[in-house]
Simulated assay, not measured.
Amino acid sequence: MRIWALISLLPFAAQAQLGLQTGAMQDSGSGAGRCVAAYRSAWIPQNNFISAIWHLDGTVGAVANASVLPSGFTGGPTLTATMAGSNLSYANSSVSIFRQMITGNGNANDIIKTTNTTDLADLPGLTVSMWVNMSFPASNQRLFYKSDNNSSRGYFFVFRTDGSLDFRKVHGSTNMERQSCPLSSTYWASKTWHHLVVTWDGTSTYTGIKYYLDGTEVVHTGSDPRLTGTCTNQASYGGYATGANGTGGFNSDSGYPFILFGVPASSSSNPTSASLTGSMDEVVIWNKALTGAEVSTLYKHQKCN
């Protein structure tokens, strides 16, 4: 009854948007830390601000060229596969509620991108949540991308070979970026799947970018097994390795698709980065920055199965 009571408080549009299947939800009744997310879209915070959900589900096997990956809610943006080969494939996920996942082998010409370039354009803020199953990067791995080759518009997110996370909001003159302290390869190898989240508050100040790994912010405040333990500049950049404010204002990025897995053929943006080698699942995008508490809630409820 508590589940039904809570859902009844949500706006009807939000219930329909997220496609909540209440019959599949479970509540252990254990209070804090309870596991309730039997259905993947349940218990997602700030659901009225969600711009995209992609479950990346499909029939096990190669992703077909020009195939359409549906949105997770009615009227949401879809993805289209652009395949030069058979280097993206569906497989069953080891996380039962995630059903399938997509795996790539780093081929730059095999990508999935928003069907319409205007989708996810000119966002007033941003949160991107995804689950990844990948090795510690031997080359800079681009996780998502929407830009004009890092020239004057858009944004993108890279997991660098030194273990740092690097999100950039492209400006007309100087790009805004904030680079995390290096992640520990030992910690990364200790788990099969990791939950990565980047948030941006919509300003041109680098402190408006935050990264979260497995439920909490990646910020150097002392001993943290997720970090290497050395980050010489963290005192100057609020617990992060580097930071730069953006200048020159924002230009519209409506003419460029949002891309997962691949790197556009025309792209040589700094940092030079390769397509993802590994698996990705459950990509959710908000048009605002979630709080640390909201990210923690999302992680706990998505990983509970």
Rank of each mutant, 00 (worst) to 15 (best):
W286D: 00
N109E: 12
I3F: 03
V63W: 06
V219E: 10
T232A: 15
A235Y: 05
V95I: 15
I111D: 00
D27M: 13
K210P: 01
W131C: 00
T291K: 06
G262Q: 13
I111E: 03
A241T: 03
K210N: 11
A84Q: 12
Q21L: 08
G255A: 15
G75D: 01
F250L: 15
A244F: 05
N251G: 08
S67L: 04
C181A: 14
R2I: 10
G202F: 05
W193E: 03
T186Y: 04
P77W: 02
T80D: 08
V60S: 11
R40W: 08
T247C: 03
W54K: 09
T117N: 15
F144P: 01
T74Q: 13
R153G: 02
F136T: 03
F98G: 00
P124L: 10
T74I: 10
Y90D: 07
K303H: 05
T297M: 07
L227F: 13
V263W: 03
T221H: 06
C181K: 09
S151D: 06
D214W: 04
L183D: 02
Q141M: 14
Q100L: 00
K303M: 13
F156S: 11
L10M: 12
I259S: 11
T230H: 09
S204A: 14
R2L: 11
L20W: 11
R34N: 13
D119S: 13
V295K: 02
A241K: 09
D224A: 07
D110W: 03
L143K: 00
R226D: 03
S204Q: 10
Y187I: 06
L213V: 14
T272K: 12
D281H: 04
S41G: 08
R99M: 01
A81H: 00
F250C: 02
S204V: 11
T186D: 10
S51Y: 06
F156Y: 14
L120H: 05
M83P: 05
T59M: 11
D110Q: 03
G255F: 03
N149E: 05
R142V: 01
C181L: 09
M134N: 10
A244R: 11
A84Y: 07
S252K: 03
L18I: 02
T115S: 15
